[in-house]
Design a protein around this nucleic acid. Structure first.
Lengths: 332, 332
DNA sequence: TTGTATGCGTTATCAT
DNA sequence: ATGATAACGCATACAA
């Protein structure tokens, strides 16, 4: 049986409350007794029961990470593990732990209310990509502190995100700087905020160069390889000499289509992707891509959330992290 | 403020205890009152406070998923997300939730005892790959129900694993059936059970064919691409005409080295990998590989663990899941 | 600075 | 079949 505060109190000759104070870093406890108690705590490697703490103080040092089940497949690769790593690592450093909620559609109803009412969570990080995810609505109607990973287009809620607009713009501008005249794009789903924003970036880049945005140079994909292949086949009749694909997976598909058409990458069609998957540096030719600080985003989400939990303040927080263009031979 | 049992009791005109009984499916409660209470519960979408339940009943319906921080990078790709998907999905279906613990070395001490003593977990799934992970020792000295994902070579503990020996054997036999005479292997780290077992499978296949196990046809890698490349360069002087790489990432590295040496895949050197990464079907030539049921393994781990929690039984459980050889053109 | 007493929302034991 | 009541382990208001 695990020890309790009472046990520690008895062993160190003080009262339960004093031990509690020591553990919670209360100022007004005599250094002597503090040290004495600490010694015992370490000797027995005492860990307070979080359930009991949760009951008594409404504070468990647990945060929830909620993510729709689709995400991990959709962003084929390292997005999800990187985010988790960032989140858990920040939690480790701050004495918090993570509860994971993969929201599967069939358990949707149960999920949301469980998250809000189970009394085990101090706050929630939501990594949703769909624009109209109902969970966001529920959350903002509750008084549970929460932060979105991925900005929300309409509601004024706390979020952290990668600057997808800037990323899309950087990618497109890079192609334009290579003297490419007909720069096409393969977008992500327009109802996903990342797909939407990267497309905005593409348009901003063209506008900055006073170039027209041509329908024949725009095709929508779903971030996956196959959709990039199909989209590129639709674009080829428009004679693009470059294409910005909103994901690396789609960029790979596009490369495949370009070659099947007897064209060369990058001589005939230059390509820039997005995500900087491990595979990006290994395909031939290596893919120029936009790298996102996914892991750092996870850590910052935790830091921000904990800050919100510990010092509740009314103001809304919006963080946008810069991306980085990684130039490889597929574009020049 | 979330509702409590007391609130529900008042609204349905019964006592707190009766509501509790209804929620926990107690037999001896009159169907009438059961329905009445249920109606109220659903009407208000009541969720019991898990912290309180944990305190009172030592049962939280929460399980821990513990994994060393290194794993997600080491198994470059989809292993970790797939495992998590399997685990969370099974938990969803069984009214459990998942707490995630990425064990970072610098927090090791805290981690283990927190896991055991925080009073929030009914059981633990440990996904460790290193053979002598101290966490296993600690866990088996406690009385916390737990199951390993990845078998343990010495301790008699509960585990579930992929049949890595069979997988390695299938891969090697497949190459031998192609009339390859000098089948080499690039192993994983020998102190990781998966690396060890796949290597055993390689040796068993040779022995079954009465072929010698030659040192010059064996090189050790660390599962990553670069190490596959280096290992292959060491193997080439031995004139292998085939190689079984214990991971797809290493197989990609090996392909690179083979080509740099002016040889062709598969004509001069046939290759079989392990993991069946998404990239395996997209490289040229598409890579023959061993597919593991990672997600199912996660689900089964949960099912087994919950079974252990709910019907404590002394016997040790060992589950080994079959792998599948996916034949593509890199080998024939 | 420290101790005492109360309550957090459940489950479980004991009555009825 | 149901209700009252005592834990569960901790934090905290209040007393000292």
């Amino acid at each position: 049986m695990p020890l309790t505060l009472e046990d520690i109190a008895r062993k160190s000759g003080v009262s339960r409350s004093t031990v509690s104070r020591v553990i919670n870093g209360d100022e007004k406890v005599k250094p002597d007794t503090r040290d004495k108690v600490m010694a015992i705590i370490h000797e027995y490697n005492f860990q307070p029961n979080l359930a009991a703490r949760g009951l008594a103080a409404r504070r468990t040092n647990v945060i929830g990470l909620v993510t729709p089940a689709g995400v991990s497949t959709l962003f084929t690769d390292p997005y999800f593990p990187r985010l988790i790593r960032g989140v858990t690592s920040a939690c480790n450093a701050r004495q918090y732990t993570v509860m994971l909620w993969l929201a599967e559609p069939e358990f949707e109803r149960r999920t949301i209310s469980q998250i809000l009412h189970n009394g085990l969570l101090d706050g929630v990080i939501v990594s949703s990509m769909v624009m109209d995810d109902p969970i966001v609505q529920s959350l903002s109607e509750s008084n549970m502190p929460f932060i979105l990973v991925g900005r929300h287009p309409t509601l004024d809620v706390n979020y952290i995100d990668v600057d997808n607009v800037q990323g899309g713009m950087d990618a497109t501008l890079h192609l334009l700087r290579q003297e490419r005249k007909r720069v096409a794009t393969i977008t992500g789903p327009r109802n996903m905020i990342a797909g939407f924003d990267r497309f905005q970036g593409y348009k901003k880049a063209l506008q900055q160069r006073r170039l027209p945005v041509l329908d024949e140079l725009i095709a929508e994909g779903n971030f996956l390889e196959e959709s990039g292949y199909e989209a590129m086949k639709k674009l080829l009749p428009g004679k693009p000499d470059a294409v910005f694909a909103a994901s690396d997976a789609m960029a790979f598909g596009a490369m495949r289509a370009v070659r099947e058409a007897g064209l060369r990458v990058p001589q005939d069609v230059a390509i820039v992707g997005y995500d900087d998957l491990p595979a990006a540096s290994q395909v031939t030719p290596p893919l120029t891509s936009i790298r996102q600080p996914t892991e750092r985003m996870g850590s910052l989400a935790v830091d921000t959330l904990i800050d919100m939990i510990e010092n509740p303040m009314p103001q809304t927080r919006h963080l946008l992290l810069a991306t980085e263009l990684v130039v490889r031979s597929s574009c020049c």
